[in-house]
Nucleic acid binder design. Sequence first.
DNA 1: CGACACATGTAACACGTTACATGATTTG
DNA 2: CAAATCATGTAACGTGTTACATGTGTCG
Lengths: 194, 194
Amino acid sequence: MSIKHGLLALLQEGPKYGYQLRGEFEVATGATWPLNIGQVYTTLTRLERDNLVRGDAGSADKDGRSMYEITDAGRAELAKWFETPVTRESRPRDELAIKLALALTVPGVDVRAVVQRQRMATMQSLQELTRLKRSSTDGEISWQLVVESMIFAAEAEIRWLDHCESMLVRHRGTPRPAVPQTYEVPAGEQEARS
Amino acid sequence: MSIKHGLLALLQEGPKYGYQLRGEFEVATGATWPLNIGQVYTTLTRLERDNLVRGDAGSADKDGRSMYEITDAGRAELAKWFETPVTRESRPRDELAIKLALALTVPGVDVRAVVQRQRMATMQSLQELTRLKRSSTDGEISWQLVVESMIFAAEAEIRWLDHCESMLVRHRGTPRPAVPQTYEVPAGEQEARS
DNA sequence: CGACACATGTAACACGTTACATGATTTG
DNA sequence: CAAATCATGTAACGTGTTACATGTGTCG
């Protein structure tokens, strides 16, 4: 849904061709998620199939590049996209949350180690993001906001991981099915638990 | 990748059948993302195709339910999952960030309105999440941590939206650079409404 | 010339998701 | 009995993603 609408948005400025779309998309979003050129074409094909864009309507430009043009239906779809907020439900499942939840649920997983490895990794990418942000004072504003959205998310994730750890400490030995904790399970110690 | 590994994790406790997996998955993650039963079976089929689980190896249980069992390869894959942190790159594109970036990039979009609508929606889901968290003091701990991960994320999102708005104010009036060079811009077609 | 970037596409796959078909069992 | 729930699956679709085929143009 992101790329699809992103391309639509760019096409609202006027007809464009494949590589141009990739270029402008990456300028806008900061190449943070590099966009494979092949995907631009597959997405354009699907948009055309759904009548949201028209390919080669006025035919190719003078250099023979195929131009794509947004349709009225496309404009409507795009307007709807901008009008409708992104909801929790529309988001993909958070893999990290699931991983932690299941690490807590099934026996034989060193949850502390998972949390700590993750915190390490997240802190490192936070550092890289900060460096990235710093190295771009003048650049496009949209660029910068995208990086900052990741920074905010990474910070929140670290806070959450800390919170998880403190919950873990509080939880040690309290209820539930005695996960053999702290270190590697000695082989063959997994009691069947019911 | 989340569901796939989630099911693998549950299967490490021992052979289970479809509905059982859905139930335990939702107990662990809090039914925050309801898991369609059909998806359990499609995922199991694909896991079996990849030799990560074995279906009906010891054949069905006494009540005729088909049991699935994790294989050694599955256990290895699962261990790898728990060992490897979730990286920024492995995450899906953030639709909200893209939306904002493109709202800033293309003309004719009321960015302030987009931000404000989103803040409103996020605040509301934050409220619901808080209520949800409160109404579950005793429940499974993993349950609660998942809800809290969403709360942390929502809070970060609101902070980011505020940040965006203040950036907008600071940026207002600054002419947009950008816009391509390679191609002749078709006579002003972009209507500001939409 | 040969390497490389530009340019357009197609094929195929992974994952998530839903809708449907089918039957057994439970329960009001 | 009828409806609901449990239970297992299949088919098909949407989006994202990569690998490949193919050709043009440019430049050292």
